[in-house]
């Protein structure tokens, strides 16, 4: 490599690194799609694509809910519990009180905001690790979810709401519209707005952010609230897709919520927000799931593989970081 090229490489290293991550994920996705296309004739059908996208529409928002707090170096174990609680409450308001969809959803989101405020305020006011706070609140939220209707689902949801949840244009589910909007908003938040910069600054170096006059505690509370809102949106659209408010909503979100951002290469110490890569990672994991379903493998394989993927992904990130560090010291 010439000296000029070397210089250019080093000056835009971060950028090229991000691109690499991106290209890497896209490559694996293409490869997997190719393999599935050859092995499984059912893969390239419109309905299978619909199934695939329908799944991603929810899990991607779940992943974003976790990403939100990972950006500031915290963890949120109550993503699933919040989603479940909001779904049950919203469903209940629709069935029992007969509230119109828009109002019920708005109130549901408001409950989500309350849950996020509880997490955020407890974390910042007490200075206790968000992990343990959200472990406790998750238990409390789950109690509400199951207790509200004695562990029974609500079935009588407004027809239009369910139609939205289950309808599609070709392979494209309506609910994916919500996911796309959420993704774009998050991208804009982190790339273009003051709040986004402040969140990234708090995640990158909390002390420096504080000394630079950023209201760290307020930012942390906002982050937990945003995470809870995203969890709530995921809960509500999953409810629409299922056509009923199941108390089990959210109970299996913990693993994918961490696996997807980690596969996307998020820095667990905070400070990075790979919004687009997270979408690719969600697609990748959905493809693996889809492949297992199509090949009629034991459903427990997905759990095994998700765990393995987490370990491999962090391992690779780590390896690259070490190699990167070696290269900088050597040069």
């Amino acid at each position: 490599m010439s000296a000029v090229a070397l210089h250019q490489a080093s000056s835009s290293r971060l950028q090229s690194l991000a691109n690499k991550e991106w290209a890497w994920l896209a490559g694996i996705i293409l490869l997997m799609s190719a393999v599935l296309t050859i092995l499984e004739p059912n893969f390239l059908t419109q309905f299978n694509f619909y199934v695939l996208l329908r799944g991603i529409a929810v899990t991607l928002i779940v992943a974003y809910a976790q990403l939100m707090v990972l950006v500031v170096g915290q963890l949120n174990l109550s993503v699933g519990a919040t989603g479940g609680m909001v779904a049950i409450c919203t469903g209940g308001m629709m069935e029992v009180w007969g509230l119109p969809t828009v109002i019920a959803v708005a109130l549901g989101l408001l409950i989500g905001v309350g849950a996020g405020l509880a997490n955020g305020l407890l974390t910042t006011r007490t200075g206790i690790n968000g992990f343990i706070i959200t472990l406790a609140t998750a238990s409390a939220f789950t109690g509400v979810t199951i207790g509200l209707n004695d562990a029974k689902p609500w079935y009588n949801l407004p027809k239009r709401f369910v139609e939205f949840g289950q309808g599609r244009i070709g392979p494209f589910p309506y609910i994916a519209i919500v996911t796309i909007i959420v993704g774009i908003l998050l991208w804009v938040l982190f790339e273009r707005t003051l709040l986004g910069r402040q969140i990234l600054a708090v995640g990158g170096n909390q002390r420096a952010a504080e000394l630079s006059g950023i209201p760290v505690d307020r930012i942390l509370v906002i982050v937990f609230v945003l995470s809870a809102i995203l969890s709530s949106i995921a809960g509500i659209i999953l409810m629409a897709r299922l056509g009923s408010a199941q108390p089990s909503i959210g109970s299996d979100w913990l693993l994918p919520s961490f696996a997807i951002p980690i596969v996307a290469g998020i820095a667990l110490s905070g400070g990075s927000a790979p919004v687009i890569n997270t979408a690719l990672a969600a697609l990748l994991i959905a493809l693996i799931d889809n492949g297992l379903v199509l090949t009629k493998a034991d459903p427990y394989w997905i759990q095994f593989l998700l765990g393995l993927i987490i370990l491999v992904a962090v391992g690779l990130n780590r390896l690259r970081a070490v190699r990167e560090a070696k290269r900088t010291t050597a040069s």
Partner: peptide, 20 residues
């Protein structure tokens, strides 16, 4: 040292008063 390592030089310089 009180800089945000992942941020660019410009982002760090304007951290207190980002142009908005």
């Amino acid at each position: 040292r009180n800089l945000i390592p992942k941020f660019s030089v410009a982002e760090n310089i304007t951290l207190e008063q980002p142009p908005v």
